[in-house]
C-alpha cells in the first residue's frame, strides 16, 4: 500500500470514528498516523475536523442531537490528544492562527456550547485560554490583556446572564478596540450582538458548531489550495 493509500485509509478511519463516536477507533488511527509518519496537521484537519463537519450536518438534519454531539466531541478529543503534540510549526505554514480567551459569563453554569467552540478553536490550531464557567466579567478583560489574545469568545445560555456580555464588550473595546469579540449561546441574536458592539455571534451550540465548522472549513480550503 502506498503512502497516499495509507493516508486515505487513516483519514477515513479518523473521520468515521468521530462520526460514529468510536473513541477507540479514532485513537488507533491517530497512533497509526504517527507510526507511519504522516502529516499530523493533515490528519487533524482532513480526518478529525472533516468528521466533525459531517457531525454538524447530521445535527442540522436532526439525525444527531446533543448527546451524539458530545460523544463525537469526545472521540475527536481522543484523536486530538494524541496528534496535537506532534503538529509541527511548519505544517501550519502561513495559515491563520492565534489566541482565544473563552468562557461562560458570570451567572451561567452551562458550558456545553462553550466547550464545543473551544474544541473547534483547538482543532483549528488556536491557543485557547479557557476561563471556564460562571466567570466574573472583569476576568475576561484581565485575561485578554494578559495574553494579548486576538479573540474573546463569550457564552451565555440564559437570557438572564446575557446582559453581562454587554459590559464585557464595552470593557474590552475601551481598552483594546482591535480585539474581535464573539458572542454565543441560546438567547443571543445577531441584533443583540450588534447592539452590544460584538463582532460575531452564534445563537446556539448547534449554530456555534456550524459557525466554527465554517471557519474550519475555510481553513481546510486554504490548506488544500
Amino acid at each position: 500500500m502506498g503512502n497516499s493509500e495509507i493516508r486515505e485509509r487513516l483519514l477515513k478511519e479518523l473521520n468515521e470514528g468521530v462520526v460514529e463516536y468510536d473513541e477507540e477507533r479514532v485513537k488507533k488511527a491517530a497512533l497509526e498516523v504517527l507510526d507511519k509518519g504522516l502529516n499530523v496537521y493533515d490528519a487533524v484537519m482532513n480526518g478529525l475536523a472533516a468528521g466533525m463537519e459531517k457531525v454538524g450536518e447530521l445535527y442540522d438534519q436532526q439525525e444527531y442531537f446533543v448527546p451524539e454531539l458530545l460523544m463525537c466531541a469526545d472521540a475527536l478529543y481522543a484523536g486530538l490528544d494524541i496528534l496535537k503534540p506532534h503538529i509541527r510549526l511548519e505544517d501550519l505554514g502561513d495559515k491563520p492562527k492565534g489566541q482565544v480567551v473563552i468562557g461562560t459569563v458570570q451567572g451561567d453554569v452551562h458550558d456545553i456550547g462553550k466547550n464545543i467552540i473551544k474544541m473547534m478553536f483547538e482543532v483549528a490550531g488556536f491557543t485557547v485560554h479557557d476561563l471556564g464557567r460562571d466567570v466574573p466579567l472583569e476576568k475576561f478583560v484581565e485575561e485578554q490583556l494578559r495574553t494579548d489574545a486576538e479573540i474573546v469568545a463569550l457564552s451565555a445560555m440564559m437570557t438572564t446572564t446575557m446582559m453581562g456580555m454587554k459590559k464585557v464588550v464595552e470593557m474590552i473595546k475601551e481598552r483594546n478596540p482591535n480585539v474581535a469579540i464573539m458572542l454565543g449561546g441560546a438567547p443571543v441574536t445577531r441584533d443583540t450582538a450588534d447592539l452590544f458592539g460584538a463582532d460575531g455571534y452564534a445563537e446556539s451550540a448547534g449554530n456555534a458548531v456550524q459557525e466554527a465548522i465554517k471557519m474550519i472549513g475555510r481553513l481546510r480550503e486554504m490548506q488544500n489550495r
Binding site: 458570570q106 451567572g107 451561567d108 453554569v109 460562571d134 466574573p136 440564559m158 438572564t160 446572564t161 446582559m163 453581562g164 459590559k167
Partner: peptide
C-alpha cells in the same frame, strides 16, 4: 447556591457544585 450578592445588576442564583 451562588447568590451573587456582590455582583452588579440582575443575576439569578446558580448551583456551584454539581
Amino acid at each position: 447556591v451562588s447568590l451573587y450578592e456582590g455582583a452588579e445588576g440582575i443575576l439569578y442564583p446558580t448551583v456551584p457544585s454539581k
